[in-house]
């Protein structure tokens, strides 16, 4: 059977890895290529890079980071942030990325999912969703969690799958950077509804949080940033713990 994946996420700004809380209070962490290499050698199953810069000038710095990363690691990695067109897809895939995730652009132009899937294959197209619970419903947000689209999370996930997305990254806005655990409820809901892999994101603080989201949340993979960046959790140690608790993970690396 497939192993559950552990995925460090690197937010990149002006060529540096940074980290914030609830999408705010950004701090400098490390060099992205060095950090990627470290994770690759120490048990990460995959990496995610988010370009959190806005200007075109800095975009070129980011593409350079993608290229250098591709030369230095031999595990898959995906790129997100600022992807709006097929041209953007082509650019990062050419630079060596394996997958591309789209968030706001997918909401604004859903046919981008289909176009990209037809051109590059569904396995390349990751639908990234920022979700937040309002009363009893989970809504989809865009523009870094600032705008409520009114879309319902489960419906959007299903639609994304139908449009051709090959994977979903589910970011819980309220859990992000708070280290109180993943949002199990919505992760499980979506994971049970769709037939494509679901990566849980936002909220990892301790090893038990990973166990919970992979087991109770039925996620196929768990993504985290600061607990790995600040070495609060070592992936190897996390995987040994998950394995002891009945989760299939890749431990030979």
């Amino acid at each position: 059977m497939l192993a559950k994946r552990i995925i460090p996420c690197l937010d990149v700004d002006k060529g540096r890895v940074v980290k914030g809380k609830k999408f705010k209070d950004i701090q400098d962490v490390a060099d992205p290529v060095e950090l990627a290499k470290y994770y690759c050698d120490n048990g990460a199953d995959e990496l995610v890079f988010y370009d959190i810069t806005a200007s075109n000038e800095n975009r070129d710095i980011f593409i350079d980071v993608v290229e250098r990363t591709a030369q230095n690691i031999n595990i898959p990695f995906s790129i997100g942030g600022g992807i709006r067109t097929i041209k953007d897809f082509t650019k990062v895939l050419k630079a060596g990325a394996d997958k591309v995730s789209i968030n706001s652009a997918a909401v604004k132009t859903p046919e981008l999912i289909t176009k990209a899937a037809l051109k590059f294959g569904s396995q390349c197209v990751v639908l990234s969703m920022d979700v937040k619970k309002n009363k009893n419903d989970w809504d989809v947000y865009i523009n870094g969690g600032r705008i409520n689209t009114g879309l319902k999370a489960v419906e959007w996930a299903l639609r994304g799958q139908d449009l051709g997305a090959g994977e979903i990254v589910l970011n819980s806005i309220d859990s992000d950077g708070v280290k109180n655990g993943y949002s199990i409820e919505i992760t499980r809901l979506i994971s049970e509804m769709v037939n494509i892999p679901v990566i849980a994101s936002g909220g990892a603080g301790k090893r038990g949080d990973f166990l919970e989201v992979l087991k109770e949340g039925k996620a196929d993979a768990a993504l985290a940033a600061s607990v790995f960046h600040y070495r609060q959790i070592e992936i190897k140690n996390l995987k040994d713990y998950l394995y002891k608790n009945g989760i299939e993970v890749r431990r030979d690396f």
């Binding site: 059977m1 497939l2 192993a3 994946r5 199953d45 569904s122 396995q123 090959g166 994977e167 037939n195 494509i196 892999p197 196929d220 993979a221 890749r250 030979d252």
Partner: peptide, 28 residues
Amino acid sequence: LKVPQMGWNKIIKSKNDDIAKGINDGEY
């Protein structure tokens, strides 16, 4: 199961061959 199969899976040898030299059963 979910399609595509996307991720790390174990390989098991059914015969010895130079192409799989040094690979143990269960490597991902």
